[in-house]
Amino acid sequence: MSLLSTQCSTRLLAFALPFLSVSTHAWATESTNVTLLNHNVQLQYKDAVRLDQVLSDALQQDALQQQANTFDAGYRLFDNSKQDDVDDLYTDVIQRLKKLSEDESHSVAAEQLLQQVQSHQYRYRIITSLDIDSVRLDLAQNPKMPGNYLLKLSARPSSVHLAGLITPKSIAFSSFYDVAGYLEQGKLSNEANQSFAWVIAPNGQTTKVGTAYWNNQHSRVIPGSIIFVGFNSNDSELADLEQDIISLLTMVKS
């Protein structure tokens, strides 16, 4: 089995850093434009403004619309200028899954993952704290933002989602469940990893956790998380494909 190159994901992750660390005098002459996906309203600033200003204005729009989008762990900020990188990664993953589906031993798993990946829209997400209080207290988390962005605020979700090589479903959030407890409510595929799963938190952070009787880490999840089950294989190409799918899932638009 020969899969396509996985260079896209490495490049994609590297691009998140300049947003947090770079600030130049030249930015003062650039504007900031942010489309609020909750309201289809655009915030326009003549000069580049800092992240806390954008968050404050977005929350004011929520107040005007009498919405309570206060679950900052689920806020999503997307950079329009880097969308090509997400599109390239998506195309690469789709091509590799289609090629994998031609392998009889992996065809069922590949088709299952292909259907899930194609069910979402993806944008280049900036993985950073969007808690307005934390942002205001730390200049490193409060950069100026020249350019064009999308921002989606979130109310507290009520469910956790199963994805990957398990029956995809949403399960009502319960503080009594750990990761293994959620997985027990789904049906694993034949090729699914029986011992580990990935937790994709609403803020885009990912963690691999043990879920079997011998390595159960009893990890809790917060509402809105995705629990992704990957391949039960040591094949490096399948592992790379799994990582790229997870990268995409951190960048789901909605």
Rank of each mutant, 00 (worst) to 15 (best):
L3N: 04
S5Y: 09
T6Y: 04
Q7E: 14
S9Q: 07
L13W: 04
L13Q: 11
F15I: 06
A16P: 00
T24V: 12
H25P: 08
A28S: 13
S31G: 10
V34P: 06
N38R: 04
N38Q: 08
H39D: 14
Q42G: 03
L43T: 03
A48R: 00
D52N: 13
Q53L: 14
S56R: 07
S56K: 09
S56P: 00
D57T: 05
A58Y: 02
D72Q: 07
A73C: 05
D84K: 11
V86F: 07
D87K: 06
L97N: 03
K99Q: 13
D103Q: 13
E104V: 13
E111K: 11
Q115H: 06
Q118N: 11
Q121Y: 14
R125Q: 12
I126Q: 10
I127F: 04
D131Q: 09
I132Q: 12
L139M: 08
N142L: 11
P146F: 07
L153V: 01
P157I: 02
V160A: 03
G164H: 04
P168N: 06
I171Y: 04
I171S: 03
F173Y: 14
V179N: 01
E184I: 05
E184H: 06
A192K: 00
A197K: 00
T206A: 01
Y213M: 13
W214N: 11
R220H: 08
G224D: 00
G230D: 08
E237P: 10
L238P: 11
E242V: 03
I246C: 03
I246P: 01
T250H: 02
V252D: 12
